[in-house]
Simulated scan of single mutants.
Amino acid sequence: MWLTRVLACGTVALAPLEGYLLQVHGQLAKVMPAALIGVWVGSLVRQRRLPAPHPLHLVVALLAVVLLTTSAVHEAEPFTLEYLVRWVPFLVITVVLADVAAREVPVPALLAAAVAGAVVAAVGGLLSLVGGSLRATGPLEDPNDLAFFLVAALPLLVAIPAKGRSRVVLLLLGAVLVAGTAATFSRGGGIALACALVWLVARRGLPVRAVLVTAAVTGVAALVFAQAAHAELSRALQEKSHIAGTNADTRMLRWQAAARMLSDSPVLGVGPGGFRQQYAAASHNAEIDEQTPVAHNLFLEVAAELGLPGFALLIGFVAIGFVASERALRAGARREAVAVQAALIAVLIASIFLSEQYYLPLWSLVAIAVAIEQRTRKERGPCAFST
């Protein structure tokens, strides 16, 4: 059991640090998830059991069928196999995390691991500014990807038990995550963070005072940094304002291209990785210097590549996370459920501007939501879910 806990928490904690791991070895980021899957399969064999059935399993299985089908149709395309191999581990790890979190690994430990990994990533991003970067990157090459991990982790702080001085520690960790997000200059990350905080306050998961204190601490730190690095901050703001308009234009071009792909192939799409392959033709060579980009929109990219069935299953997957967390919330698991909901909202909002289906937060948050529901059902009985 201890090994399962270590591997599960390690998988979640190391997800935002993937870039650091890849610098050590190209396959190092895969070791922890692979070990977790292996230990999990071994435990199923030893215990002669299967995971408790849940609608999550059906949606994941159907999504796998769609992936395999469209991959078979588009097997000759250059990116199909590469992107199929990227998809499958996330489907498997979702089922694994949902099962181990419902049975062996405490949910607060997983949430704390996600926060810990994000805090280290935020610190790395802030240190990258000292190293000369104009926008925080740290363990991830793209500042927007770093912001995605940070805003997904920040709401989870409210689910970590804290008393006395430990509350101050959580506020400081929150300030680090906010500062790291701000240092990425990611507009999508900022919008996602704002939406998550509004949800937490509206559902009484976070006192307004805590938001104000965190904002004040972050603001003071920002003022100190601005005074100490005025020239660098000015250059960063100028760079961001320069590329902002270009980013908006290119995103619109890519979204339109994705819509054309979906219109042309609504049933099976253009296959995993097909957006990159088909973009030049679908956009009529709108970007001469970028022939194989991503769509910068998770939903449109999945719809274009997997067709309407794959898109519907993705929406169903997300819906399962919200339904499971809401059922757990109404049964009494308020703090954890609201935190996961807010984190999911942050992930979904950020994914409007980014293609983040190949990062763990979307998958792990839905898995944890299902685990919270199943744990609550065991602890409080089916009657708690009847109203």
Rank of each mutant, 00 (worst) to 15 (best):
L3A: 10
T4C: 11
C9I: 13
C9E: 05
A13R: 01
L14F: 15
L14K: 02
A15T: 08
L17D: 04
L17G: 02
G19D: 02
V24Y: 07
V24A: 13
H25D: 15
A29S: 10
K30V: 03
M32I: 14
P33T: 08
V39C: 05
V39I: 06
H54E: 11
L56Y: 00
H57A: 09
A61K: 01
V65W: 02
L67A: 06
L67G: 10
T69V: 14
V73C: 06
H74I: 01
E75F: 11
P78I: 04
L84Y: 06
W87K: 01
V88T: 02
V95F: 00
V95L: 14
D99N: 12
V100L: 11
A102M: 07
E104Y: 08
L111F: 12
A113Y: 11
G117W: 00
V120T: 11
L126H: 06
S128I: 05
S128H: 01
S133K: 01
S133F: 08
T137M: 13
D142M: 01
L146I: 04
F148S: 09
F149N: 10
L150Y: 02
L150A: 13
V151Q: 01
A153P: 14
L156S: 10
I160A: 11
G164K: 09
S166W: 12
V176H: 01
L177S: 12
V178E: 11
A179F: 10
T181G: 15
T184S: 07
S186A: 08
G189K: 00
A194D: 13
V198A: 15
W199N: 03
A202L: 15
G205D: 00
V208E: 12
V211D: 15
T214P: 03
T214Q: 14
A222L: 12
L223W: 06
H230V: 08
S234A: 15
T246V: 15
R251H: 13
W255A: 14
W255F: 12
Q256M: 09
A257S: 13
A259L: 14
A259S: 14
D264E: 15
S265E: 13
V270E: 03
G274T: 08
Y279M: 11
A281S: 05
S283V: 08
H284L: 13
H284M: 12
H296F: 11
N297H: 14
N297I: 05
F299K: 03
V302S: 08
A304C: 11
E305C: 05
L306Q: 11
L308I: 15
G310Y: 01
F311Y: 06
V318C: 02
F322N: 08
A324Y: 00
L329M: 05
R334E: 12
R334A: 14
R335M: 12
E336H: 07
A346N: 09
L354D: 10
E356P: 00
Y358P: 01
I368G: 05
A369L: 02
R377N: 07
G381A: 02
A384R: 05
